[in-house]
């Protein structure tokens, strides 16, 4: 039943064209940071490590560090295009491999946390809107305010204290236990247990945001003419809430996740650090403490590009949810 109209394709094309300069822009920012950092750019490209003399020369040649700035930018873009993100001496492997190795853990954590946030946030928001002004509404709203105000990493520490240190119910450090030999479903289950606390810590802020947004949009829809019209057609109250009113909330919810990717990843970096979760965030923390600059700047670059792409994808999803967007 989807209407994949020419207007939709035109809209997608325009949005992609608009995203290109932003992509170039974030890459240039990254480049400038490396070039303008105090000291020699080679230090930033290699890290604060004693590197072999020939590698230093190789980096200087690859990135053309004796050339003028514009030439260096072109070289930098060329190296990126080839997928060369540099070499991490601290980890003794190319940065690209290092990042790919850690990417899965971060995607798992943030994906589960956002799914959790959406389900809980939507249910709480619909519930609050349905009983607007009642006690339930107050409880949801107050919880949301708390969830929105508590720093993720502090929440993580509290969860560790309660569920790992005091109650001893759940593991809190890493992704699997050190001596684990589990495979197959048992291994999945084990990762799942390790995932519970960090996922809750990371999702809380978005549970709060999504429930507030859902409450507002659903409450607005419930006073709209089209809901009155649906009720006049004998549509059930459940369908009114979850089909008519919630559809109104879908676009803002997608926006809040899509447009907040940079904050989600920032939260993930902090939460991963608290829980020793072996993802990109923990890698970022380690690279900062070890002054492993190529890893640090590469992560910044990945996150920046990710944010631009997430914004783009968000807009495209909006156009699918709300057909009117395509024509604006």
């Amino acid at each position: 039943m989807s209407s994949a109209s020419p207007a939709l394709f035109r809209y997608i094309g325009v949005r992609i064209l608009q995203a290109l300069p932003l992509l170039l822009g974030v890459v240039v920012v990254n480049f400038l940071l490396i070039q303008l950092a105090p000291g020699d750019p080679t230090t930033v490209l290699i890290g604060d490590y004693p590197a072999p003399e020939e590698y230093v020369r190789q980096v200087r040649a690859e990135f053309g560090l004796d050339q003028p700035l514009p030439t260096r930018l072109v070289n930098y873009l060329g190296q990126l295009a080839q997928g060369n993100l540099g070499y991490s001496f601290a980890n003794r492997m190319p940065v690209r491999e290092l990042i790919l190795q850690r990417l899965g853990a971060t995607i798992l954590l943030t994906g589960v946390a956002m799914a959790l946030a959406t389900v809980i946030g939507v249910l709480a928001g619909v519930w609050a809107a349905r009983y607007r002004g009642k006690a339930t509404d107050g409880v949801v709203q107050t919880t949301a305010l708390l969830g929105y105000s508590i720093p993720e990493f502090f929440l993580g520490q509290i969860l560790i204290l309660i569920f790992a240190v005091w109650l001893g119910w759940l593991p809190s450090q890493g992704m699997r236990s050190a001596r684990s030999t589990a495979t197959g479903p048992a291994a999945t289950l084990e990762v799942g247990l390790f995932l519970i606390l960090p996922a809750i810590a990371l999702s809380m802020r978005y549970v709060a945001l999504i429930s507030r947004l859902t409450r507002a949009s659903v409450a607005e829809a419930l006073t709209s003419d089209y809901v009155l019209g649906a009720r006049a057609r004998g549509v059930s109250e459940r369908r009114v809430l979850f089909v008519h009113a919630l559809r109104n909330a879908a676009a803002p919810i997608v926006t809040v996740i899509g447009y907040n990717l940079s904050f989600i990843l920032a939260g993930s970096a902090l939460v991963e650090t608290v829980f020793a979760w072996p993802g990109i965030g923990r890698l970022l923390f380690d690279s900062i403490t070890r002054r492993d600059y190529p890893v640090m700047t590469a992560i910044l670059l990945m996150v920046s590009i990710g944010v631009v792409l997430a914004n783009l994808i968000t807009d495209l999803i909006q156009a699918v949810i709300d057909p009117r967007v395509r024509y604006s």
């Binding site: 300069p21 932003l22 822009g25 974030v26 920012v29 940071l33 950092a37 105090p38 930033v44 940079s262 904050f263 990843l265 920032a266 970096a269 970022l284 900062i288 002054r291 600059y293 640090m296 700047t297 992560i299 910044l300 996150v303 920046s304 944010v307 631009v308 914004n311």
Partner: peptide, 24 residues
């Protein structure tokens, strides 16, 4: 506004981290 849009896509926290790590 294009300028503002650009600053809005910059990942605030990670960029601040890297800047402080590099520049002190």
């Amino acid at each position: 506004m294009r300028f503002a849009e650009f600053f809005q896509v910059l990942p605030r926290f990670v960029l601040a981290l890297v800047i402080v790590a590099l520049f002190g």
